[in-house]
């Protein structure tokens, strides 16, 4: 299969959906001539023109609100927030408006929209450009939340997100954009709410999101050499969550390690752990382990940044600790 970059997969997904459905359009900061700060809209202005690839002023609240308004009129906007950190500027529209109008208005309002953004650390971009805030959005009923870890998943999930009739918060990771991977040439989608077992194993289950999936696969490869067999499961969609795939793995291995780049406290992993503790309690042979960022804003210094962000070795250490407990 041909291989393309993660960011190219994102561009392709939007290009295909825009070609397929003329109600799909894009809005966001610097997405036109500039092709997006992380080059995720390159070439789309040339293909679809200024009406459908709309550069906005620096107005995050306006961007999300306008996306919602257009969705109410029956369009399918894909709004880009340049950094997930800037979603904080748009929080009223995301939380009080986008997530609420369907329910509040008795299920009649149309809210088919996608908010695409990118987060995560690793480029020394410091405390206001490197956060992992997915838990905020999972916490809000009315939003679906997607966090792909490979080019193939990114494309298939983004296409589904655009076709979905609910608001989808779609979180990319800045360090994954330059990752290459196989992506089918033919039209395909990956449904929201379906996890994928990225590696099969017997001794423990690692549930990993976004950038932690790759690190967990590396950890699993190393642990294999020690005779430890890890199963790595990527939920891909944090809500709706494919509990069955994850719990089936946990029931099989009896041990669960959850890893994400966000800080541990009230992270998505806390919800995952609670679900597993409730629904797979009888199968758990050891307390659930979480491998997450240290509880601090993201520091600028590369040395500190890599210290607070979980890496492959942290996953390995977490896995060893998990296997040592009876």
């Amino acid at each position: 299969m041909r291989e393309i970059l993660f960011r190219e997969a994102i561009v392709e997904a939007m290009a295909e959906e825009m070609a397929r459905d003329e109600t799909v359009f894009l809005l966001g900061e610097d997405i036109a001539e500039f092709g997006g700060s992380y080059k995720t809209t390159v070439g789309l202005l040339e293909k679809f023109g200024r009406e459908r690839v709309r550069n906005t002023p620096i107005s995050e609240q306006g961007i999300v609100g306008a996306a919602l308004g257009a969705a109410l009129m029956g369009l399918r906007p894909v709004a880009e927030l340049m950094y997930i950190d800037f979603s904080a500027v748009a929080m009223d529209q995301i939380v009080n408006q986008v997530a609420k109008v369907r329910y509040m208005f008795g299920g009649k309002a149309k809210t088919a929209l996608v908010i695409r953004t990118q987060g995560g650390a690793g480029r020394s971009s410091a405390a206001q450009h490197a956060q992992s805030l997915e838990a905020w959005f999972v916490h809000v009923p009315g939003l679906k939340v997607v966090m792909p870890s490979t080019p193939r998943d990114a494309k298939g999930l983004l296409k589904s997100a655009i076709r979905d009739d609910d608001p989808v918060f779609f979180i990319e990771h800045k360090l994954l954009y330059l990752q290459k991977g196989p992506v089918p040439e033919e039209d395909y989608t990956i449904p929201l709410g379906v996890a994928e077992v990225k590696r099969e194993g017997r001794d423990l289950t690692i549930v990993a999101t976004s950038s932690m999936v790759g690190k967990s696969l590396q950890a699993a490869a190393e642990l294999e050499k020690e005779g430890v067999s890890c199963e790595v499961v990527d939920p891909r969609t944090l809500f709706p969550l494919d509990k069955e795939t994850i719990l089936a793995s946990v029931r099989k291995t009896g041990r669960l390690l959850i890893t994400h780049e966000a800080v541990q406290r009230c992270g998505w992993g806390a919800e995952m752990a609670a679900i597993a503790a409730r629904e797979a309690f009888d199968h758990l042979d050891a307390p659930i382990v979480r491998v997450c960022a240290k509880e601090t804003p993201v520091p600028f210094a590369p040395k500190l940044e890599s210290h607070v962000i979980p890496n492959k070795d942290d996953v390995i250490a977490g896995a060893r600790a998990l296997l040592e407990t009876a």
Binding site: I58, P297, P299, L304
Partner: peptide, 26 residues
């Protein structure tokens, strides 16, 4: 100025009346 925690976009010095550079536009 910020012990290496802030970087280019986040220099501040309260003694000299610099409340802070800012990575958030506005």
């Amino acid at each position: 100025y910020c012990k290496g925690k802030g970087g280019s976009m986040h220099i501040a010095d309260q003694d000299l009346g610099v409340l802070g550079a800012n990575g958030i536009v506005g």
